[in-house]
Lab assay of single mutants.
Amino acid sequence: MDVFMKGLSKAKEGVVAAAEKTKQGVAEAAGKTKEGVLYVGSKTKEGVVHGVATVAEKTKEQVTNVGGAVVTGVTAVAQKTVEGAGSIAAATGFVKKDQLGKNEEGAPQEGILEDMPVDPDNEAYEMPSEEGYQDYEPEA
């Protein structure tokens, strides 16, 4: 019985440690998101679009440190934060509304985080759909 109880105690310690790591990862992701939003706020009209992409990228980098179902929630929060940063930029006159959601080359930025393969159960990952990809044929 002692062996059984000791095993359960060790398992509990492992769960607590994993929860603490997840909590730490979420806190880091939130900190990076805040950094990115402050970065966007300090940019001029020309830099705002690039700044919004930076927020998304920093958040995406930190999301990889967070495991399990938390990833889905962090990704949703990050996307809403990026959308909010863009709205703030438009409201303050840093950028025109028609410039939001495009990178410096004018290509749409939507789907940055949505296409990231995420499995809350950590069982399997699927690649994003290939609808947006084109076949590449090298020139002879």
Results as ranks from 00 to 15, higher is better:
6 K>R: 05
31 G>S: 12
42 S>I: 13
118 V>E: 12
120 P>G: 10
5 M>V: 09
61 E>W: 12
140 A>I: 08
61 E>H: 04
63 V>W: 15
121 D>H: 11
127 M>N: 09
48 V>N: 00
4 F>S: 00
136 Y>F: 10
103 N>G: 06
55 V>C: 07
34 K>E: 00
116 M>H: 12
50 H>A: 13
8 L>Q: 00
105 E>I: 01
49 V>F: 14
42 S>N: 15
112 I>F: 05
27 A>S: 05
65 N>L: 08
32 K>I: 14
38 L>Q: 07
6 K>G: 01
136 Y>P: 08
52 V>Q: 01
125 Y>M: 03
26 V>E: 00
9 S>N: 15
134 Q>G: 12
102 K>I: 09
85 A>H: 03
93 G>K: 04
93 G>H: 06
98 D>K: 08
13 E>Y: 05
86 G>V: 12
96 K>T: 13
60 K>N: 02
64 T>P: 03
94 F>G: 04
96 K>W: 15
72 T>K: 07
139 E>W: 08
114 E>L: 09
130 E>Q: 11
68 G>F: 12
79 Q>M: 09
82 V>Y: 11
36 G>P: 01
74 V>W: 14
74 V>C: 11
19 A>Y: 15
76 A>S: 07
108 P>Q: 12
71 V>C: 04
127 M>I: 11
126 E>H: 13
107 A>M: 10
55 V>L: 15
28 E>Q: 06
26 V>D: 00
104 E>Y: 12
103 N>Y: 08
41 G>S: 12
70 V>D: 01
139 E>I: 12
110 E>P: 12
72 T>R: 10
43 K>H: 05
45 K>V: 12
108 P>N: 13
35 E>A: 05
88 I>N: 02
78 A>I: 12
109 Q>E: 10
11 A>G: 02
84 G>H: 07
105 E>M: 10
5 M>I: 00
81 T>D: 01
35 E>S: 06
49 V>H: 14
23 K>I: 02
51 G>I: 15
26 V>W: 15
61 E>K: 08
127 M>R: 05
85 A>F: 12
139 E>P: 05
22 T>M: 08
119 D>Q: 13
45 K>N: 02
16 V>Y: 14
51 G>H: 10
78 A>M: 14
53 A>I: 14
5 M>T: 01
127 M>Q: 12
